[in-house]
Design a protein around this nucleic acid. Structure first.
Lengths: 112, 112
DNA sequence: AAGACATATTCTTGTCAGGGAATATAGAAC
DNA sequence: GTTCTATATTCCCTGACAAGAATATGTCTT
């Protein structure tokens, strides 16, 4: 969890994760799209890998990196413990006002 | 979003957030419970505040800090874009196996 | 008023993480 | 084999950041 947060809390790595959301990619491709140098991308991928956020498969001299869902799933589980903060109605008005003030994102289906 | 992640990606601040999940608390109380020195707690609270994660109300010489749900809500919204990674059935078995194993190892076969 | 209490801020210092450049490794193609 | 391509790793340097200690700000109590 901590490792996941630390890994994501860096702009370049965050971008890499966003890229990989659309599917696996080789290192060079990411470097090009994100306008980063190859070594830095490799280094970031190592951090992401250590955090369990990515894995790769070898294709000749290429390494095709892909997202591993598990850590993100954990993050979501953790976040759910906070869900009552904005879902329970004792907070509703507060949140609503906040949204009006700053133009927040949508919120979906009310469960539980 | 980035600010939120950066703020959470620090153990003490993460703990503070966890504490505040149960309700608002004054600074001294948090310092005591987390065995941190008061100045460090104040500093962390400033970072959390700048990220919009906490707010406070003044009570005499105390400042009662509370969680602000908005940033966490944003995080959840962001995470939902990744939800298909583990909710779609083409990934179900994969993820399940991973959980059963509980050990971290490489694995193959992502589609798309 | 003075002192006690709660919190914030400053300053310093040590550590660590990320970028750049160069180099190493590994496989493919010739 | 040698060369080209793709990626990883090393080394150095700098900037950021968190802890510690001391101090400042602010408010209550007497």
């Amino acid at each position: 969890m901590m490792a996941t947060l630390r890994a994501l809390a860096e702009p370049s790595r965050f971008q890499i994760v966003e890229l990989l959301r659309d599917g696996p990619r080789p290192v060079g491709d990411m470097a090009q799209r994100l306008r980063l140098r190859q070594p830095q991308v490799s280094k970031h991928l190592r951090v992401l890998g250590d955090a369990g956020l990515v894995e790769f498969r070898v294709d000749a001299q290429r390494r095709i990196y892909a997202l591993r869902p598990a850590p993100l799933q954990e993050l979501e589980v953790w976040l759910e413990r906070y869900r009552s903060l904005w879902e329970d109605n004792f907070q509703r008005l507060d949140t609503l006002l906040e949204e009006l003030k700053t133009g927040e994102k949508k919120r979906r289906g009310l469960r539980r």
